[in-house]
Protein backbone atom coordinates (compact mmCIF):
# COMPACT_ATOMS: atom_id res chain seq x y z
CA UNK A 1 0.00 0.00 0.00
CA UNK A 2 1.29 3.44 -0.86
CA UNK A 3 1.56 6.25 1.60
CA UNK A 4 -1.90 7.84 1.70
CA UNK A 5 -2.18 11.17 -0.02
CA UNK A 6 -3.54 14.26 1.66
CA UNK A 7 -7.05 13.59 0.34
CA UNK A 8 -6.97 9.95 1.42
CA UNK A 9 -5.77 10.87 4.87
CA UNK A 10 -8.52 13.42 5.08
CA UNK A 11 -11.14 10.83 4.21
CA UNK A 12 -9.71 8.43 6.81
CA UNK A 13 -10.27 11.13 9.44
CA UNK A 14 -13.74 11.84 8.12
CA UNK A 15 -14.76 8.19 8.19
CA UNK A 16 -13.39 7.59 11.68
CA UNK A 17 -15.24 10.66 12.90
CA UNK A 18 -18.42 9.45 11.20
CA UNK A 19 -18.12 5.99 12.75
CA UNK A 20 -17.19 7.35 16.15
CA UNK A 21 -20.11 9.77 16.27
CA UNK A 22 -22.69 7.32 14.96
CA UNK A 23 -21.34 4.59 17.24
CA UNK A 24 -21.59 6.85 20.26
CA UNK A 25 -25.10 7.86 19.24
CA UNK A 26 -26.30 4.29 18.86
CA UNK A 27 -24.56 3.36 22.11
CA UNK A 28 -26.36 6.15 23.96
CA UNK A 29 -29.73 5.14 22.49
CA UNK A 30 -29.20 1.51 23.50
CA UNK A 31 -28.06 2.59 26.94
CA UNK A 32 -31.15 4.72 27.51
CA UNK A 33 -33.37 1.87 26.31
CA UNK A 34 -31.67 -0.82 28.34
CA UNK A 35 -34.75 -1.56 30.42
CA UNK A 36 -36.99 -2.07 27.41
CA UNK A 37 -34.54 -4.14 25.39
CA UNK A 38 -34.54 -6.96 27.95
CA UNK A 39 -36.63 -9.85 26.71
CA UNK A 40 -37.88 -10.74 30.17
CA UNK A 41 -37.76 -9.54 33.75
CA UNK A 42 -36.30 -11.59 36.56
CA UNK A 43 -38.50 -12.17 39.65
CA UNK A 44 -36.30 -9.75 41.54
CA UNK A 45 -37.00 -6.99 39.01
CA UNK A 46 -40.67 -7.87 38.70
CA UNK A 47 -41.59 -7.50 42.36
CA UNK A 48 -40.04 -4.04 42.36
CA UNK A 49 -42.32 -2.88 39.55
CA UNK A 50 -45.07 -0.39 40.26
CA UNK A 51 -48.70 -1.28 39.86
CA UNK A 52 -49.29 0.82 36.76
CA UNK A 53 -46.46 -0.95 34.96
CA UNK A 54 -48.13 -4.29 35.56
CA UNK A 55 -51.31 -3.63 33.56
CA UNK A 56 -49.74 -4.81 30.33
CA UNK A 57 -48.63 -8.36 29.67
CA UNK A 58 -44.95 -8.89 30.33
CA UNK A 59 -42.37 -11.64 30.26
CA UNK A 60 -40.89 -13.21 33.35
CA UNK A 61 -37.85 -15.46 33.26
CA UNK A 62 -36.11 -17.66 35.79
CA UNK A 63 -35.69 -21.20 37.01
CA UNK A 64 -38.66 -23.48 37.74
CA UNK A 65 -38.17 -24.03 41.46
CA UNK A 66 -37.61 -27.65 42.49
CA UNK A 67 -40.62 -29.26 44.12
CA UNK A 68 -43.11 -26.56 43.21
CA UNK A 69 -44.63 -28.00 40.04
CA UNK A 70 -48.26 -29.06 40.54
CA UNK A 71 -50.80 -30.15 38.01
CA UNK A 72 -54.21 -28.64 38.80
CA UNK A 73 -56.08 -30.62 36.15
CA UNK A 74 -55.33 -32.13 32.75
CA UNK A 75 -54.51 -28.74 31.23
CA UNK A 76 -53.58 -26.31 33.95
CA UNK A 77 -50.61 -26.25 36.26
CA UNK A 78 -48.87 -24.21 38.86
CA UNK A 79 -45.20 -23.67 39.59
CA UNK A 80 -42.83 -21.13 41.05
CA UNK A 81 -40.23 -19.20 39.10
CA UNK A 82 -37.16 -18.18 41.03
CA UNK A 83 -33.91 -16.36 40.43
CA UNK A 84 -32.48 -17.31 43.79
CA UNK A 85 -33.59 -13.97 45.24
CA UNK A 86 -37.35 -13.87 44.79
CA UNK A 87 -40.04 -16.46 43.97
CA UNK A 88 -43.14 -15.81 41.89
CA UNK A 89 -46.03 -18.30 41.64
CA UNK A 90 -47.16 -18.94 38.06
CA UNK A 91 -50.37 -20.51 36.79
CA UNK A 92 -50.62 -21.72 33.22
CA UNK A 93 -52.84 -23.89 31.14
CA UNK A 94 -51.66 -25.20 27.84
CA UNK A 95 -48.88 -27.18 26.22
CA UNK A 96 -45.40 -27.13 27.73
CA UNK A 97 -42.21 -27.16 25.65
CA UNK A 98 -40.22 -30.41 25.69
CA UNK A 99 -37.42 -28.99 27.80
CA UNK A 100 -39.72 -27.85 30.58
CA UNK A 101 -38.95 -29.42 33.97
CA UNK A 102 -38.07 -28.43 37.49
CA UNK A 103 -34.71 -26.73 37.65
CA UNK A 104 -34.92 -25.61 34.02
CA UNK A 105 -34.81 -22.00 32.88
CA UNK A 106 -38.11 -20.77 31.45
CA UNK A 107 -39.60 -17.55 30.13
CA UNK A 108 -43.34 -17.04 30.65
CA UNK A 109 -45.58 -14.40 29.08
CA UNK A 110 -48.66 -13.07 30.80
CA UNK A 111 -49.97 -10.74 33.49
CA UNK A 112 -48.75 -10.35 37.01
CA UNK A 113 -50.63 -9.11 40.02
CA UNK A 114 -49.54 -9.41 43.61
CA UNK A 115 -52.78 -11.14 44.69
CA UNK A 116 -53.17 -13.63 41.87
CA UNK A 117 -49.54 -14.27 41.06
CA UNK A 118 -48.41 -14.58 37.45
CA UNK A 119 -51.01 -15.81 34.99
CA UNK A 120 -49.11 -17.05 31.98
CA UNK A 121 -50.49 -17.48 28.49
CA UNK A 122 -47.25 -18.76 26.97
CA UNK A 123 -44.32 -20.76 28.36
CA UNK A 124 -40.96 -20.93 26.59
CA UNK A 125 -38.06 -23.06 27.75
CA UNK A 126 -34.56 -21.67 27.94
CA UNK A 127 -31.50 -23.82 27.62
CA UNK A 128 -27.93 -22.97 28.46
CA UNK A 129 -24.86 -22.89 26.26
CA UNK A 130 -23.46 -26.17 27.56
CA UNK A 131 -23.64 -29.28 25.45
CA UNK A 132 -22.52 -32.72 26.54
CA UNK A 133 -23.45 -36.35 26.02
CA UNK A 134 -25.83 -37.92 28.55
CA UNK A 135 -24.04 -39.03 31.68
CA UNK A 136 -20.98 -36.90 30.96
CA UNK A 137 -21.28 -35.00 34.23
CA UNK A 138 -21.28 -38.18 36.31
CA UNK A 139 -18.36 -39.68 34.39
CA UNK A 140 -16.35 -36.48 34.68
CA UNK A 141 -17.03 -36.26 38.40
CA UNK A 142 -16.08 -39.89 38.92
CA UNK A 143 -12.82 -39.42 37.08
CA UNK A 144 -12.14 -36.38 39.17
CA UNK A 145 -12.00 -33.97 36.29
CA UNK A 146 -12.50 -31.06 38.60
CA UNK A 147 -12.27 -28.50 35.87
CA UNK A 148 -15.56 -29.41 34.31
CA UNK A 149 -17.20 -29.76 37.70
CA UNK A 150 -16.08 -26.32 38.73
CA UNK A 151 -17.35 -24.93 35.47
CA UNK A 152 -20.78 -26.38 36.00
CA UNK A 153 -20.98 -25.22 39.57
CA UNK A 154 -19.84 -21.70 38.87
CA UNK A 155 -22.22 -21.41 35.98
CA UNK A 156 -25.07 -22.40 38.24
CA UNK A 157 -24.11 -19.61 40.55
CA UNK A 158 -24.03 -17.22 37.65
CA UNK A 159 -27.38 -18.50 36.53
CA UNK A 160 -28.95 -17.64 39.84
CA UNK A 161 -27.88 -14.07 39.42
CA UNK A 162 -28.46 -13.57 35.77
CA UNK A 163 -31.17 -15.74 34.44
Amino acid sequence: MNIPTQRQRYSIYKLSLFLGLVGTGVGLILWSMKDTIVFFYTPEKLILKEKKDLEKSIRLGGIVKEGTFNKLDAQSMKFHITDGIADIPVTYSGVLPALFREGQGVVVFGKYSINKGFQATEVLAKHDEKYMPPGAIEILNKKGCWQSEVRIKSSNKKRGGRL
Binding site: K34, I37, V38, F39, F40, Y41, T42, G61, V107, L124, K126, H127, D128, E129, K130, Y131, R162, L163
Partner: peptide
Protein backbone atom coordinates in the same frame (compact mmCIF):
# COMPACT_ATOMS: atom_id res chain seq x y z
CA UNK B 1 -24.39 -10.63 27.70
CA UNK B 2 -25.84 -7.13 27.87
CA UNK B 3 -29.53 -7.95 27.98
CA UNK B 4 -31.77 -10.75 29.15
CA UNK B 5 -32.43 -12.85 26.09
CA UNK B 6 -34.10 -16.13 25.30
CA UNK B 7 -31.02 -17.07 23.30
CA UNK B 8 -28.28 -18.66 25.40
CA UNK B 9 -24.82 -17.06 25.71
CA UNK B 10 -21.95 -18.10 23.46
CA UNK B 11 -20.69 -21.67 23.78
Amino acid sequence: EWWQTLHQPAT
